[in-house]
Structure formats: structure tokens, C-alpha cells
């Protein structure tokens, strides 16, 4: 390499001879005095708040300690958790169906999916839950048979449908609209060349979807879905609208009404919610790791400002970001 270079005087002139190791730079470090000032102010403020809170009677820490592991509370926490899981499972299944419908070539199928999204995203979840609470009043009986003839059987809704399930239906139908958009964004983010390659290999539509497109879409779908699970856990506190009151927040509110002390039970409920969301965040981290196989280490993780959940950013095509804009619409 160096031999032909040495022959050319021009090349020699532009590359000065390299001496020994360059001398390390000894510069005086730039000081950041304000950093320390702000840090101290923040720590002092936080310490003051904690000290004050621990002394303040209104927080009722003795009551907090008494009720945090109360049987009714832990049962309510379980119900909240189950409600979240059921609602999310239904919402994801329905969301995938709606997403596929929206990507369909059939204009009617597409239109119906759009209409669903329009209604369920365009009205507050609280209002929807009140509607579901009135479901058994609006539809007192469900008749099965041929329309306009005598029904074969008639089901009385009030006796058959539990309020818990009405709440789950309300939550999941609302959530499905958001999940549909997330899934659709995920599917659209997969390079069309992938579908083409799988087609060229002789795969059918469903095979290509299951084996090639969906696994790749998962990388885009999982982070916002994790946020949705966390969001759903908190939204369950709205089921009082149905009305259903055996969930975590409903139960703690009922107890506080009996003991005439609202604050400690709010803290109890908050502590449980925080515990669950923290566990979910850890689970999401591992799921994201699993589905970013083959993408190398190019994944930047940063906390989402709204929920603090981890989120994958920076894939070459990450269209969920503009679409995932529900934060402000949801009643938290």
C-alpha cells in the first residue's frame, strides 16, 4: 500500500509524517454550578414533602397500613387484574379483526371497520360504560329466531349477563378501536417486499400473514400495546359508570365511605395500581427484547412520558408514533 504512495510526491506532501503518540489534552473542565443547585433544590423539596407527608394526619398512615393488605382490597385488586386481562384479550382479538377488515379490498368491509372506529374512538369511554350499564334496560330480552316471526327462545338479559361482563364488554369494545389502529400500523410497517418474497415462494395469504408479516409487525405492535395494557388497568377505575364497584378503586371508595376517611384508601388503591403497572413494565421489556430478534442492537429504549412504559423507537419504519395519539382522548 505504501510503496506506490511514496512514488507520488503530491501524496507525500499532503500526509505529514506521524510523530509518536499525540499528547493527551489537559484542559480545565467546564463547571456546571447550576446543575448542583437544581439537584439540591429538588432533593430538598422532595425530602421536605416526604417528611411532611409522613407526619400529616390526613394521610392516615395507620389506616393505610391497616387496609393495604385487607382481604377485600386484595380481592378487588384481583378483580381489577382479571378485568384488565379479559378486556385486553378481547380487544386484541377484535382489534386484529378490525385491522384486517380495514386493509381489506372490499369497500363495505372497510367501511364497517371505519364506522366502528369512528363511533368507539369518537365517544368517551365513560359514556360508553354508562351505555353498557343500561344495556339490560334497553334490550330487556334477546329473541332468537327468524325476524318478524315468533321467536324460538327469548333470553332475559338481566338474569343472564353479569355486571362484571358488561364492564368487560364496554372496556374491550372501546379498546378494540385503538388496538385496531396499532395493529394496522404494525402490518403496514412491514416492507411490501416481504409479502412479495413469501408469495414468490408459494405461500398463501394467511401463511404469509402468520409466518412473515405478523411476526415482523409485532415489533411495532408490542410497545404501544404494552402502553394500552397499562392504560387499561387504570381505565378499569371508570367501571363505576356501569355501575360496578368490586374493582380496586370501587372497593377502596366504598371502604373509605364507611370509615369516613377518603385519603388513606386512595393511597392504598394507588399503591396497588403502581405495583401492577411496574410488573407490566418489566414484562413489556422482555417481550420487546424477544420480538426484536434479527434487528441487531439498533433499538433505542426510552421511557414514554405519559405512562413511563418502555417503547421501541427508531426502527426504519415506525408509523405508530403519529397514529398512537390517544393519550389526550382517554379519560384517565
Amino acid at each position: 500500500m505504501s510503496a506506490p504512495q511514496a512514488d507520488r510526491p503530491a501524496a507525500r506532501a499532503t500526509v505529514p509524517p506521524v510523530s509518536a503518540q499525540p499528547e493527551p489534552i489537559k484542559a480545565i473542565k467546564l463547571r456546571h454550578p447550576w446543575r448542583i443547585v437544581f439537584a439540591v433544590i429538588l432533593i430538598l423539596g422532595l425530602a421536605l414533602f416526604i417528611y411532611d407527608a409522613s407526619q400529616r394526619d390526613a394521610y392516615g398512615w395507620d389506616q393505610f397500613a391497616k387496609y393495604i393488605f385487607d382481604r377485600r382490597i386484595s380481592q378487588a385488586a384481583l378483580i381489577t387484574l382479571l378485568m384488565t386481562i379479559y378486556s385486553m384479550v378481547i380487544a386484541i382479538v377484535l382489534g386484529v379483526i378490525l385491522a384486517v377488515m380495514r386493509l381489506s379490498d372490499n369497500p363495505v368491509v372497510k367501511g364497517v371497520a371505519w364506522l366502528y372506529l369512528w363511533v368507539f374512538r369518537g365517544t368517551p369511554v365513560y359514556v360508553q360504560l354508562v351505555f353498557w350499564g343500561l344495556f339490560t334496560t334497553i334490550y330487556a330480552t334477546i329473541d332468537i329466531g327468524i325476524p318478524f316471526t315468533a321467536p324460538w327462545t327469548s333470553i332475559e338479559t338481566k338474569a343472564t349477563i353479569d355486571v362484571f361482563w358488561l364492564a368487560v364488554i364496554g372496556l374491550s369494545l372501546n379498546e378494540a378501536a385503538y388496538m385496531a389502529e396499532i395493529v394496522r400500523a404494525g402490518i403496514l410497517s412491514v416492507d411490501p417486499g416481504q409479502t412479495e418474497a413469501s408469495k414468490a415462494l408459494g405461500m398463501g395469504w394467511s401463511q404469509s400473514m402468520r409466518r412473515i408479516v405478523i411476526p415482523q409487525a409485532m415489533r411495532i405492535i408490542i410497545p404501544p400495546t404494552g402502553n394500552e395494557v397499562i392504560s387499561m388497568l387504570k381505565t378499569t377505575s371508570l367501571v363505576a359508570a356501569v355501575p360496578f364497584s368490586f374493582d380496586l378503586y370501587g372497593r377502596s371508595r366504598d371502604i373509605s365511605a364507611v370509615i369516613f376517611d377518603p385519603v388513606p384508601l386512595l393511597l392504598v388503591a394507588s399503591a396497588w395500581y403502581l405495583l401492577f403497572t411496574s410488573i407490566l413494565m418489566v414484562g413489556q421489556y422482555f417481550l420487546e427484547k424477544r420480538f426484536s430478534r434479527g434487528v441487531g442492537q439498533a433499538i433505542e429504549k426510552r421511557p414514554n412520558t405519559e405512562t413511563g412504559a418502555l417503547r421501541t423507537v427508531g426502527g426504519p419504519n415506525d408509523p405508530t408514533r403519529p397514529i398512537d395519539s390517544k393519550g389526550s382522548e382517554h379519560t384517565k
Binding site: Q194, S198, Q216, V295
Partner: peptide, 9 residues
């Protein structure tokens, strides 16, 4: 294909 289109996962 020109762009290979290998399945990245």
C-alpha cells in the same frame, strides 16, 4: 429480488 427481501426475523 433486487432488495433481497430476506425475512429479517
Amino acid at each position: 429480488f433486487q432488495r433481497f427481501n430476506l425475512f429479517p426475523h
